[in-house]
Structures are given as structure tokens and as C-alpha cells.
Nucleic acid binder design. Structure first.
Lengths: 336, 336
DNA sequence: CGCGTTTACGTCGTTCGTAACGATA
DNA sequence: TATCGTTACGAACGACGTAAACGCG
């Protein structure tokens, strides 16, 4: 068994059992891949794939086990090369992040701009998806970082650092009656209008419904969308009152929209960053986290990353005061 | 980087940085090892060892990191070959167990006899040591199974199956006054004699002292030993009352010794078996556990081994009724 | 002078890519 | 017939082992 064989195996799997494209991806010849696969199967004394004629049809159950282990092997080999690059001071490598639309659109741009200036040689890759997709990506080590909000259950294998708190805001056109309302917003008032918010099964969706149900209210959700941009568009069209994340309200939105703080109405939500337990944290990765969460010192991040037990980890990050993020603070912006 | 290079690296480390003996252990030439090590260091761009003249003097800090990762790589490669052997139905391999004297001497012999009959081609290796040594061995994956009693804290990374309960017995020569005592034994009575028991910092030692302290007693411990055989010898010499594990009293001992149940006086102790979370459990390993702990069905063991979360694991093994093991039950033996 | 490592060198096995062939839809 | 995998073959590289040199205690 050689690392090459394992690499070829994984590449075949990742190319959908197509040996030819695996060969292309690896910049080598197709017969070479075929041969190595055969040798691996011969050495293990078992079929890793079922054949249909000459083509690979499916992965055998045993094959799946082997593939899973092979991925771990390659991951650790990756870790070794990461280590060596780190120690020799090379600031090259990749940083792959899976996150939600809200983070990618409203929070990360500033961070990423600063990061790419500091580390021009690091390749940055951004994946966007639902919590489930993000969990899948990071749990299978296809990405380095997951940045998301709400339920940590999907990410129980990871080391998770808290980044900031946010809350919800209600969004109405400037001409809307709520925009002139002086009294603080209540859930009951909100339930009197059709609502436009994030699709359920996304971050924090359950707390949205639960807040209303706790007061015996059953609001009409006129429309749901994956991201705040779409919600804003429909709010502008008068479809209803938007309920979005505080970070998603930006200064230009003030021209025709008004954001109404809904901080007390729904539970506060934490955005966190997670990464696999055994991943080697390159220094640029630590810096990325620090850029995203300045309240976490580089030293704290390093210490948390090398913590062995959950208790040790909690002691480091458990009682850090998190900043609360809103997008464009209307009052302060108006005062300026 | 190749698997060969990593294997050579680990072998060098395990041979105390002696390349020549590493070569012998690997049945290859010494210059070959040297060359591969150089290549690895060149590829990683760093020194893994500090040199003293031409010899290797010490492992660099970075080298330690690499070595740790390399071990993981090789471990997973081992797992792949284990899998393949398992699937092709070969009943060959090794089973390495680290345990205490009590288990090795009084519990395992019967199990191992049955096991070697069933699996003559499996190489069995038994390591004996203190709890700390056992923890070290299994945590560094130098052994497959740890079998021990008492504190699980040292073994928090492992999957741990409960095997049986045991308790302590007091041991006196037949001529001793306690041997004729009709009333049940008390701690106070016990504290009236010099005691002979296991050395402290061994399994269950703290609960021994604590039991006396809870009643404000401070017994004189005349002598401590690593194992029950030695304790028996000194009990026979009249050095004091022995306090040993219930399994350690065997029928032949009845000729000149009397065992007095001390079940209520000290807390009950559980013996358990632990193995690394990510280890491939060969079927002979499962059978071994079943032989040792017949109350755990093969199915239960398999399910527990593949449990992903601690909760899932606990649900399987949490509320199983464990047998209580004594060695030679005097009463029943006398009746027979 | 012995122990251990490195250097030098010849041999052998393996891998790799090209090219031709075979099977499948 | 197009796509995909296998077989065949020659060239090149790399690993291995022997033998000799080097450094250190």
C-alpha cells in the first residue's frame, strides 16, 4: 500500500468513479490510475468497487470503510505538510470556508479583504449552503472552517469558537405605519402584519416561530427566502414586514427602508466558527479568526485549538464577552 | 512523502534514534533508512532530529509534531489492512492487551486458554503494569485492549466496556482469631490488626483508605505489595490481615487461609475493558471480549464499538447487569 | 579501534506515458 | 461510434544492498 494508491483511490471516488477524470485531476495518465487501483485491490484481497463491464459501478461496503480510512490517512499527511510549511514560515496554502449567505454577504467581505491583503499567497475558497450542507462539508473535512449560527448539534465533533451575538430586526418601507410608531415593537404588533423572513430549517428559524407561539400568536408568514437581499426586495414591494438578522441592514438601505430593533422579542443568537479537532491551524488561519473576532486574541485561539479536553477548551472561551453586531446602526448613522 | 518514509521515521524513534537497529528491525539496509530520512527532511524542509556529529541526538519540537501525525497515519494504514484481513476472513493478526497483575493472574488465564484454542493463528501479547502504564500504552496505541479497574479518568479517550464487579476480601491464616469469628467483619475490627494490601496508587487504593477514614479509623498498613500472591505469602507468615480482590482467592488457598467477605466494607469496584475509539475491531477481538464478559453479546459489543456518540454508547452498555466475581467461593466449595 | 553514519556505485524493480486494443451503450 | 477501461511496451527513475570512507568516543 502506498500513499499514491490511496490518493488515486480517493480521487476516483471524488470524480464519481470515473478513472479518466481522476487521471486528469491528478495530472497523470489514466492507465496508471487503473493499474494502481488494481494493485491496491490485489494487496487488500478484495474488491473496492463493483464493476459493470469494465467501468466502475459502485463502491462496495468494504470499499466505503477503506475509503473512509484512506481519507483520514491523507488528511494526516496533509497535516504534516501543513506543519512543515508553517514551520518553514511559508505563508502559502489554502483556506476553505463554508458559511451561510448572511455571513458571506454581510460579515465576511471586510474580513476577507483584510485577509487577502495580509496573505496574498493564500488561496481562499468560500462555500455557501444551509446548516446541513455546512455540517456535511466540515465534518468530512472538505472545508477548514464552518461559520454559522444557532444549533451546534450538527457540529458536535468540532472545536467551536464564539464570534459575536446578533439579534433580529424588523424591516419596513419608510412609508409603512410601523416606521412612524413611537412605542417599542411587540410581537403582537408584528403578528398583525404579513411577515417576510428566512426560510425555515435555516439558522435560528425555530426560535422565530417559538417566540410567537410562546405568546399564543400565529403570524402569517407571507414569504420566505434564503437571504436578506431577497427579503428586502419583497419588503420594498410591500409584501409585508421583513424580519432579518441585524447584520443584514446596511446603511444604503436607509434610503427607503427603516429597521426597527426587535432585540427583546427573539432570543439572541450566537455566530460561531468551527473547525475539525485534529486540524493543524496554520498561522494565517489563526489570523483569519482574529480578524473575524478581534475579541479573541491570537494566543487564546492557539490555546483553544490545542486544548485536549472540552473542559480545558471551555475554560478558555467560555466566558468571553462577545460583541453584538448590527449592520448600519440607524441612530448613530443619522446623528453623524 | 511516502508511507515507507513515515515507517522508517517511526522505527528510528522507537529504536531510540539508532538508525542501525531500526534497519535491523525493518529487515533492510541501514543506508536505505538514512537516505529516506534525509529525503523526508528535505521534502518537509526541516530537521526532524538534532545531530551530534553524524548521530541523531534528539527529536526537534517540530519533529515531535510530525512523528505524532505519522503515527496516526500508520495507525490508519494498519486499520485498512485489518479491515481487509477481516473481510477476507483471515483469522490471523495480533491481540495486544495491557492489564494489571490481578487480571493477568486470576481472570485472564481461562479466557486466554479458550481464546487461543479458538484462534490459534492470532498472536497474543500481554503487557502488565500499573494503571498509569496501561493508560500510556493504550493511549499511544501500543496495545489494543486495556483491562483495569477503578478510575476511568486516565482512559477518557477510550471506549470502555464494563466487564464485572468485584469486592475485597480479608485474608487470614486458618489459625487466626478472625477465622473463627462468627460476627460479620467490620472496619473497626479490621483496623485492630496490621494489614497487608496492594501498594497505593494502584487500582482502588484510594477507596481503601477512604473507607477507613470515613469511620475515623487509621489502620496500620504493615506491608504493601503489587500482587495478591505476595500478599498471601506474607499473610501466611503472620505479618497481618490481607485485604485483596475477591478474584484473587483461589480454591487451593483454602488449605491454610480463610477468606472473609468484606463486601459491605469497601465500595464495589468495576473492572472494565477499554480500546481506542477509532480502532478496527477484528472479529477475534470481539470474541475475546465476549469470552471475558459473556453478558455482553457479540452484537452488543459490535454496536457499542461503532457507536458515534457517548450517549449512543451509554444507551447500549449503561444498564447492563454485571456479574460479581469472586475467586473460590468458600461456602459453596465447602458444601460440595 | 569499534560503533554508527554517510558516500559511492551497480543492479534491479517499478512507475510512467504512449499507443494500441476491447468492451459497452 | 464515442466513451471508458485494459493491455502492451519501452524509457527513466528510484530504491536497495554492498563496499568503502568518515567521525567520534
Amino acid at each position: 500500500m502506498t500513499l499514491k494508491q490511496l490518493r488515486y483511490l480517493i480521487s476516483i471516488v471524488d470524480c464519481g468513479l470515473n478513472i479518466t477524470s481522476a487521471a486528469e485531476r491528478l495530472y497523470t495518465s489514466q492507465p496508471g490510475i487503473s493499474k494502481q487501483l488494481k494493485q491496491l485491490e490485489a494487496e487488500l484481497g478484495m474488491q473496492l468497487f463493483t464493476r459493470k463491464g469494465k467501468s466502475l459501478a459502485a463502491i462496495t461496503p468494504a470499499g466505503n470503510e477503506v475509503i473512509e480510512r484512506a481519507r483520514r490517512v491523507l488528511r494526516e499527511v496533509e497535516n504534516i505538510t501543513s506543519l512543515s510549511r508553517e514551520i518553514t514560515g511559508e505563508q502559502t496554502g489554502t483556506l476553505t470556508i463554508a458559511t451561510t449567505h448572511t455571513q458571506a454577504r454581510y460579515v465576511l467581505p471586510a474580513v476577507i479583504q483584510a485577509f487577502t491583503e495580509r496573505y496574498p499567497k493564500v488561496d481562499l475558497e468560500l462555500h455557501q449552503g444551509t446548516s446541513e450542507q455546512i455540517a456535511e462539508l466540515v465534518n468530512t473535512h472538505q472545508v477548514d472552517f464552518a461559520i454559522a449560527s444557532g444549533s451546534r448539534k450538527l457540529f458536535s465533533n468540532l472545536k467551536v469558537l464564539p464570534i459575536y451575538h446578533w439579534h433580529r430586526i424588523a424591516l419596513v418601507p419608510k412609508a409603512h405605519p410601523l416606521a412612524r410608531e413611537k412605542k417599542p415593537l411587540t410581537l403582537k404588533t408584528l403578528a398583525g402584519y404579513p411577515l417576510v423572513t428566512y426560510v425555515f430549517s435555516l439558522t435560528g428559524e425555530s426560535s422565530f416561530k417559538q417566540a410567537f407561539q410562546a405568546e399564543g400568536l400565529d403570524p402569517r408568514v407571507a414569504f420566505t427566502a434564503r437571504d436578506a437581499d431577497i427579503i428586502k426586495t419583497y419588503v420594498r414591494m410591500g409584501m409585508g414586514v421583513g424580519v432579518i438578522a441585524s447584520m443584514a441592514f446596511e446603511c444604503p438601505d436607509q434610503q427607503d427602508l427603516k429597521a426597527i430593533d426587535a432585540k427583546g422579542l427573539f432570543p439572541q443568537i450566537t455566530t460561531w466558527l468551527g473547525f475539525p479537532k485534529d486540524m493543524v491551524l496554520r498561522s494565517y488561519m489563526v489570523d483569519f479568526i482574529h480578524l473575524l473576532a478581534p475579541h479573541l486574541s491570537v494566543r487564546t485561539i492557539r490555546a483553544a485549538a490545542s486544548a485536549e479536553t472540552p473542559e480545558e477548551f471551555e475554560a478558555l472561551v467560555g466566558d468571553i464577552d462577545l460583541p453584538v453586531r448590527g449592520g448600519c446602526e440607524e441612530d448613530s448613522a443619522a446623528a453623524a
